[in-house]
Structures are given as C-alpha cells and as structure tokens.
Amino acid sequence: MKISYLLTAIISLVTLQVSAQEWVVPAEKSASLSPFAFSDSTRKAGGDLYNLNCKSCHGDPGKNNAVKLVPMPPDPASAQLQGNSDGAMFHKVAEGRGLMPAFKNTLSASDLWRVVSFIRGFNEKYVQEVAQKLSLGTSLENVKFAINWNNELNQLQVTVTALKALTRQPVPGAEMKLSVRRYFGNLQVDGVHTTDNQGVAVFNFPKGLPGDSLGFVQLQLKPVDETAFGEIKVDTTMAIGVPTYRPPLNKERAMWNVVGKTPIWLLLTYLITVLTVWGLIVYVMLQLRAIYKSGEEDDSRSKSKVE
C-alpha cells in the first residue's frame, strides 16, 4: 500500500516536472503559418536579425556553441527546436519565457517570420506551408490606411480602405492599433479598435500626452494582424500633443551647480564677508599709519621747540 502511494507520488512528481519544462503553445497559435514563402532573401534578412538578437545566447546554428545558461538555450539546428511547428516557433520567440526574452515588442511579425525562415534553413527535410491570404470577407488588394484628427472630440479617426472591383471600398472588422513614438519604443494609445461598416475606427487621444516644443507627436498606425494585411503601416506627425518645453536641469542657480551658476545669496554673503574683513584690515592699517604720522609730527614739533 505504502509502496503504491510512494510510486504515485514519484510518478506525479515526474509528470509535474515534465509539464513544468514543456512549453505549451495554444493550438491556434501553433497552427499559424507564415504569410510569405521563405526564400534566400528572407533567410538572409532573418540571419541578420538572428545575429543581432539571438546569437549572443543561442550561438551559431549547428555549432552547439550556445551560452551555458540554466536551462541551456537550444541550438536552432537541433531536433528539439526544429520539432516545433512554424507557428509554435513564432509564438515562442514572440512571447518568450524565463530567460528567453519576448520579441513581440521589438520585432514586427514579418521580421519574426524572417527569423523562423532563417532557423528553418538549417533543416534539410523542412517543407514550407504558406498561409492562404486571409480574406476578412473581401479579398484585400492595395489596402490603405488614413488618419484624421477631430479637434472637437479630441479623437483620431482611422479609415481602412481596399481596392475591390477596381473601386476603393471600406474594410470593416479590421483590428487596428495606434502608437506614439517615444525615445525607447512606441507607446500604444487607447487599446485596439475595430473598424465599423464604413471602415472607420475611432481612437481617443490621451489627454496631456506631451509632444515636442510645438506639440508635434509621431504617430504609427498598424493592423493587429500583420499576417492578414502584410507590412502596412502609416507613420505620420501631427501637432496634437501638449507643447512641452522644460529647461535643462542644470539651468538654475544652485549650490551644486558650476561657479557661474552660484546662488545669488551665496555670492552676496561671500562677497560682503570678504569685503568687510578686508575693509576692516585696511581701516586698521590706515589708522595705524595716522597714529604713526601724528607721532612723527609731535616729534618734529617738540624738536623745533627745543631748538
């Protein structure tokens, strides 16, 4: 009886351990496919991205020279990594886990697929399956995004159109995200909005978001599903931020600042003290001189009297 308990405990522990190590990818993510066919150019671009972002830990593919971390970063050419579906590989690079950083905010979906294409280059048996272009009810040709600013409502109107039967028609149901360029990355504003039947999505621009000294902000509009729309994005600059100018932090007079920025009170106190002390010394010297002189005069007077 005891032994069976122990066995169950051990087995459950082992399974727990295994499940803890396993990296489960949601089925629909695992099944996702690249929107473009892998070619030499995608592999080359992917290789450049790999060298920039992945090589420092994963090493050169096929050379087993990864950095010794716990757990070990697998070699991209290994069976362990090549055993993943394209979608699973994409998901793992995008989301990250533990020491493996997430790249969804640093690389675009297309760039992530290029990295996958580079990794697949080390698998001779690999045959690619390319995704069918997603239709969204219409076949998307020549998609265009436009941004308009509504000053009264403090809103940004985004219009998505596509060519259909040689006429430009709105695209409904397109999920869009809007972000503002900041120094180290893009700040997403007002979540994700879906276009209505007129192909219009409305974003509320956050209040008080600083722009440059004239209020200009750089906006970027992108579809959430880059796989369906491809690499389309709109970069534009609009004067809708709060004009912000803040003086340099070392501009004010302060105790810690350079000599030229000495606080006035300190400068005055110092100068007055120094001048007073020196004035006193000079005054005393002058008085001593006067005493000496009057003594000399007295001497000469008494001498002349004696004569």
């Binding site: 533990g98 950083p101 997430a102 180290f184 700040l187 997403q188 008080g208 978001l209 600083p210």
Partner: peptide
C-alpha cells in the same frame, strides 16, 4: 534584467519602456 524589474525613459515624453518586454508605458 530577465524579470521585467526596470523601466527607463524620458520624463519630458512622459513615457518609460520596460527593459525585458520592451513595452512602453506612461510614466505618470
């Protein structure tokens, strides 16, 4: 940082970016 502890950014832009996820947030 592997655990997303640090955010860094420009106060003038009211934005900080997480070093691990590279996600940008409003500082305020």
């Amino acid at each position: 940082c592997p655990n997303g502890v640090y955010y860094f950014g420009d106060e003038n832009q009211d934005a900080v970016t997480n070093g691990t996820t590279k996600e940008t947030f409003r500082l305020s």
